[in-house]
Design a protein around this nucleic acid. Structure first.
Length: 464
RNA sequence: GUGACCGUAGCUCAACUGGCAGAGCGUCAGAUUGUGGCUCUGAAGGUCGCGGGUUCGAGCCCCGUCGGUCACCCCA
């Protein structure tokens, strides 16, 4: 018999209990933090109309959409229509549109924007929501990059106040700190400042995308590398000099903002970016975020097309991952669905990368793995007592399982040992007849005889 | 989308310039007459990813293909 492939699809993973228990604890920590800040849960379908996703992620992003083939008759109809029209556009992009009108969600922000547009009247603004669901991207997987991964997003819609932009930084800080990260940086920048900077440095509009792409690589290729790429992009030496001065800056946010003022000069967009950042940092200080946890990083850009104001990206020292969380303000995205703009800002956490980071920094061992706490053995003559005891244990909250087969005791205890179950109740008929039971502590290798009626309390005591 | 590397037992990996396919871990049985881990003994388990080619002979060389890993692009 030919065996079908048992490894999961490229870029996806199976989660075994040991791993999933830990993952769930990270999810739980995120959920708690989000709810502490007043965010409410929301979920959306995995599948969206492709039209709802197109035009939001930029050309590169759109290429990574997982498209779903039309079904049955619709597929046949599309095929017939195409065959009947020899002049139809047969480019890959056009064919994709012809044969598919649905796609898997690419992120959580765009579906959220769609929901806001659809359900405005059911929502009290400003609306704070969190969402923790998988997203799919048809990328080539590598370290810290998957085709199916979870995003955990908090977004606030309906307020243009920069206090909310600052709140995102406070939430990033709280989550990373609670996870056990100590050496992390939340990079903060502003799209409007970047646009203004390019204008003020006389970069022609058609060269701005290339310029931003080059600037964004600073942490990877260094100042000289960026300078080279900017020159290759066709910028004038004067433009490059001025841009390099700006992106090479480091230090306290307020001092950097002051230092950028002459470069930005009278440029309106740039000045607005500086003003917004200044205000955001003021609120961040008021919220008590430690200064060493965030930085004003002029070279941080963010690829997604929909950001308009403040943008974020966070990194952890001692890992070779990219960003473990990012986000920003997107005041015009909801307008693409609604016809009128609603201001919004959000932060996204990449749980899968956070996981890799926790692993690399060996912080995982601080998260305890919980499984079954007590095993009750089974034998043909003690069935009644076994299930009665298991029920009593569960009633006081002890996670209890019964070995399903009345196999020899050796096998039952070996099973408990392999699963690291700390306690085993050994059901001996002669003891049960006296109203007693043997309770073995597998961790210590010690055992005692205890009255059946006190067994659940003894188990709790041994488990502390 | 571009490029590099790797596919041998359930897992991690050996096998000289082409010459009988191995180890550790795991699994199962026993030492152990209802008590796990530790130790010892033994056993099972492989179309060397798949297809073709070169050769007296291929796990090893060549071509193709599928799968995986890493980097670039981009990104969580």
């Amino acid at each position: 018999m030919a065996r079908i492939q048992t490894t999961p699809v490229k870029g996806t993973r199976d989660y075994l209990p040991r791993e999933l228990v830990r993952r769930n604890q990270v999810f739980q920590l995120l959920r708690e933090t989000f709810e502490r800040h007043g965010y409410e849960p929301l979920e959306t379908p995995a599948i969206e109309h492709t039209a709802a996703l197109e035009g939001k992620y930029g050309e590169e992003g759109e290429r990574l959409l997982f498209r779903i083939l039309k079904l049955g008759r619709d597929l046949e109809t599309a095929e017939r229509d195409l065959a009947a029209n020899p002049s139809a556009d047969r480019s890959a992009a056009a064919l994709a549109r012809t044969f598919s009108e649905l796609a898997l969600r690419y992120d959580l922000t765009v579906p959220f924007a769609r929901v806001i547009a659809a359900r405005q009247n059911d929502i009290v603004m400003p609306f704070r929501r969190y969402q923790m669901q998988p997203v799919w991207r048809a990328d080539r997987p590598q370290r810290g990059r998957f085709r199916e991964f979870y995003q955990c997003d908090v977004d606030c819609v309906g307020s243009a106040s920069l206090t909310v932009d600052a709140e995102m930084i406070a939430i990033y800080d709280e989550v990373y700190t609670r996870l056990g990260f100590t050496d992390f940086t939340i990079h903060v920048n502003n799209r409007s400042l970047l646009n203004g900077l390019l204008e003020a440095c006389d970069v022609e509009p058609e060269r701005r995308v290339a310029a931003l792409t080059a600037i964004d690589k600073l942490d990877k290729i260094g100042l000289d590398g960026v300078r080279n790429e900017l020159m290759e992009a066709g910028l004038t030496e004067s433009s490059v000099d001025r841009l390099m001065e700006a992106i090479g800056m480091s230090g306290a946010p307020q001092a950097m903002l002051d230092a950028l003022k002459p470069t930005v000069g009278a440029n309106e967009q740039g000045a607005r970016g500086l003003r917004e950042l200044s205000e955001v940092f003021e609120y961040v200080r008021a919220m008590g975020v430690a200064p060493e946890h965030y930085a004003f990083t002029v070279s941080m850009v963010r690829g997604l097309a929909y950001y308009t104001g403040t943008i974020y990206e966070s990194t952890v020292a001692g890992t070779n991952l990219g960003s473990i969380g990012s986000g920003g303000r997107y005041d015009r995205l909801i307008g693409m669905f609604l016809g009128k703009d609603l201001p919004a800002v959000g932060a996204s956490f990449g749980v899968d990368r956070i996981f890799v980071a926790l692993d690399q920094l060996e912080l995982m061992k601080d998260i305890p793995v919980t499984t079954t706490q007590a095993l009750v053995t089974l034998s043909a003559e003690t069935t009644r007592e076994t299930f009665a005891l298991a029920r009593a244990l569960r009633a006081v909250g002890v996670r209890t399982e019964v070995y399903p087969d009345p196999k020899e005791l050796r096998a039952q205890l070996a099973f408990a040992s392999k699963k690291s179950i700390p306690l085993a109740f050994i059901m001996k008929p002669e003891e049960l007849a006296r109203g007693e039971v043997t309770l073995r502590d597998l961790r210590a290798g010690e055992q005692e005889t205890t009255p059946l009626t006190e067994a659940p309390q003894r188990a709790l005591a041994l488990l502390e």
